[in-house]
Design a binder for these strands. Structure first.
Lengths: 210, 210
DNA sequence: CACTAAAACGGAGGCGCCTCCGTTTACTAC
DNA sequence: GTAGTAAACGGAGGCGCCTCCGTTTTAGTG
C-alpha cells in the first residue's frame, strides 16, 4: 500500500497508477467513468461505447485510449461502485448506532445487487476471466462487512457469537436466488429476518424497551 | 398452431426438429455449417459471419435466419464435430483390433482437442452458458470411449480391471494441460503411455510374441 | 510571455453485426 | 401442365466497434 511517487496523496496508491496524467486527460477519464456507470446501469454492459463517449463530451478515440477494451471500462466502473458501497459502511457507522448501521448497509447491499442482476452472466464471465478482480472485490466487501458486524457485536446490540463471514454467507443466498419479480422484496425481508436473528439474545435489547 | 405434420415418424422424436425444411433451405443450411466449421477452425469463433455466408454462396440474411446468433452456429458446428469424432470410434472398431482401435481413437481425440485449443475460453463460456450442451457432448464422448474400452477388455488385449471413466479421466488431463508448444507431442506420448499401462498384464499379450 | 515537445484529442473510415422487406423459389392442389 | 402461397432468399441500410493520424492542448523552459 506504499505510495511510491511523491503523490500528494490524492491518487490511489494502488499497484497501478504510476501515471500523474495530464489535467485534461484526468478530467475526461473521470467524465467517461461517470457516464459509463449510468449507461451500464441503464442498458447493460452492451451499452454503446460511442454513445458514452458522446455523452461524456469526448471523441470515441479518447475513450479507447483510456480504456482499450470494453472490459477495461466495465472493470473500472465495477471497482468504483464496489468501492463506494464499501465506503458507505464507514459513513453509516458514523451516523447510526451499530446495529442500524449494519442493517442499513445490508439493505444497501441488496439494492446494489439488484442493479447488477441483469448483468449477472456478463459479470460472471468477467469475474471468471479476471480472477484477481473477483478476489479483490470480495475481500474488500467482506472487510467492510466485518467492521460493521464487529462494531455491533462489541456494542452489544447484536449477539457476539457470529462471525462476519457467516453473515456474508447468508447474504450470498441473495445473489444466487432465482430472478423472480418479487426478488427485491424477498431479499429485503431476508435481511430483516437476519437482523432479528442477530439481535436475538444480544447483551443489549433493541431500542424498544423491556 | 399449424396443421400437425403427418410425420412419417422418420424424424428424431426429440424435443427439437418438428421441421421437414424445404429442399433449398436444407441445402443452404448444410453449406453454411460446412463452411463455418472450416472458418471457425481457421480464425476462431470470431470469424466473420458475412464471410462465411459469402463463401457458402448465400446471403447474410439466410445465415441469420438459420442461426439467429453466432452461438447457435457455433453450437451446431461443435455438436457436429463431436458427433463425427464419436462416429470414428465405430469406424475404427470395424477395421482394427480392439486395442489398436482404442489407441488410434485416443490419438484422434488429441488431434481434435488440439484444434479446439485456441478456442478454449470461448468454448468454456459457451459450455457454461449452455449446460445441456456440455452434458450432451460429454456423455456422447464417454459412450464412444466406453465401447472401445469394453471391446478391448473383452477381447483380452487390454486389462479388464479398468473402467472407461478412468480412461476418460486420464485423457482429461490433456485438456487442462498448459498450452506449451510441445503440447501435442506430450499428449501423444501420454496416450501411448496410457495404452502401455492398459495392455500391461492383459490376458492376451500384445501382438509381439512372448 | 514565447516557444516547443510530448501528450491528448477526436472523428473519419473501414469493417462486421443484424434487421427488414421486396423478390424469388419450391411445394401443393387442381 | 398451371396457379397459388408459404417459405426461403439475399442484400441494402443503419448502427456499433475500433484504428489511425492530423490537429489541438498542456506543461515545462528560457
Amino acid at each position: 500500500m506504499a505510495s511510491q511517487p511523491p503523490a500528494t496523496a490524492r491518487d490511489k496508491p494502488d499497484a497501478t497508477a504510476p501515471k500523474p496524467l495530464r489535467a485534461d486527460a484526468q478530467r475526461n477519464r473521470d467524465a467517461l467513468v461517470e457516464v459509463a456507470a449510468v449507461a451500464f446501469a441503464a442498458h447493460g454492459v452492451d451499452a454503446s461505447l460511442e454513445e458514452i463517449a458522446r455523452q461524456a463530451g469526448v471523441g470515441i478515440g479518447t475513450l479507447y485510449r483510456h480504456f482499450p477494451t470494453r472490459e477495461h471500462l466495465v472493470e473500472v466502473v465495477y471497482r468504483r461502485e464496489v468501492e463506494s458501497l464499501c465506503a458507505a459502511a464507514d459513513e453509516l457507522a458514523l451516523h447510526h448506532p451499530p446495529d442500524m448501521a449494519l442493517e442499513q448497509w445490508m439493505q444497501r447491499f441488496v439494492d446494489y445487487i439488484a442493479t447488477k442482476r441483469g448483468l449477472a452472466t456478463s459479470l460472471r464471465i468477467l469475474l471468471n476471466t479476471n480472477s484477481t478482480l473477483f478476489s479483490d472485490m470480495s475481500s474488500r466487501v467482506s472487510l467492510a462487512l466485518r467492521q460493521l458486524v464487529d462494531a455491533a457485536a462489541a456494542d452489544g446490540s447484536i449477539r457476539n457469537d457470529v462471525d462476519a463471514s457467516d453473515v456474508l454467507h447468508a447474504l450470498g443466498g441473495i445473489y444466487s436466488a432465482p430472478d423472480t419479480d418479487d426478488w427485491r422484496d424477498r431479499s429485503r425481508r431476508l435481511v430483516s429476518l437476519l437482523m432479528d436473528g442477530l439481535r436475538f439474545g444480544a447483551g443489549k435489547p433493541a431500542k424498544d424497551s423491556r
